[in-house]
């Protein structure tokens, strides 16, 4: 990628990418932290995740401010314009990913007895798949890697499978142990939070793909279908 004639433009785009990478790192850490806090029933760690979400929110505002400034002062065009717009949208989605992690962390205090519930053991594996998707989509954004972005959506199926099997397991568990309904419901909501994170990583992949190529990911799929690939 050639540099811009106006060097400060490159600096500002770099700053935008840096802020997004930082948000992404914090969101990933929040998912990991919330799940670990849940498994270990570590209330202090859970409180840290809840507290840490404020930093993600602040970064989102920072990204928005910088993106608006870039559009106003640099009048970005073509791939630059797509990247700035995508950056703003990505920050918005990462903020919501942070909220999901925060919601999981908030439930830690409620699921004291959850260790008795076997399906809990599946949640860390599910969280890892969702969090890896998020990690890779941010790498794809940083590298403008359309192929990597295009490959991420498929992995959401694994997250959905986790969710569906957890759903069945938890419902069965509740029917067998009515006393556990409150606990199991919390776990079901946690599973739903993780499932949403997988969806959001998929949405992010679509944004990254568009920013990199100027085409919608869906359009390409349709064209592949038409040409019989």
């Amino acid at each position: 990628m050639n540099e811009h004639t106006v060097k400060v433009f490159d600096d500002e785009l770099g700053q935008l990418r840096g802020l997004i990478a930082q948000m992404g790192g914090l969101a990933e850490a929040a998912i990991e932290g919330a799940i670990q806090a849940l498994v270990r029933h570590d209330l202090e760690a859970a409180a840290e995740v809840v507290q840490g979400d404020k930093r993600i929110d602040a970064l989102e505002s920072e990204v928005e401010r910088l993106a608006v400034q870039l559009i106003a002062l640099r009048a970005p065009m073509a791939d630059d314009l797509r990247e700035v717009v995508a950056g703003m949208k990505i920050a918005n989605v990462l903020e919501r990913v942070g909220d999901h992690a925060k919601n999981i962390a908030k439930r830690v205090v409620e699921v004291e007895q959850a260790n008795h519930i076997e399906p809990l053991s599946v949640l860390p594996a599910m969280a890892t798949v969702a969090s890896d998707m998020l990690h890779d989509v941010l790498d794809a954004f940083a590298a403008r890697d359309a192929e990597l972005a295009a490959s991420i959506g498929e992995r959401d199926r694994a997250v959905d499978d986790f969710y569906n099997s957890l759903f069945r397991a938890l419902v069965t568990f509740m029917m067998e142990n009515p006393k556990s309904i409150t606990q199991a419901t919390h776990l079901l909501f946690i599973a739903k939070n993780l499932e949403r994170i997988g969806d959001q990583a998929t949405n992010l992949a679509e944004m990254v793909y568009y920013a990199a190529t100027g085409e919608q990911l869906g359009e390409r799929d349709r064209m592949d279908t038409i040409s019989g690939k």
Binding site: M1, N2, E3, H4, T5, V6, F9, P76, M77, A78, D79, D80, L81, R82, G214, E215
Partner: peptide, 19 residues
């Protein structure tokens, strides 16, 4: 042309990377 130019030279020019 301004959101998704097909040619590298067009893109470099309109994004200010020309030369």
């Amino acid at each position: 042309i301004f959101t998704n130019p097909r040619q590298e030279r067009t893109k470099d020019y309109i994004t200010g990377r020309y030369g």
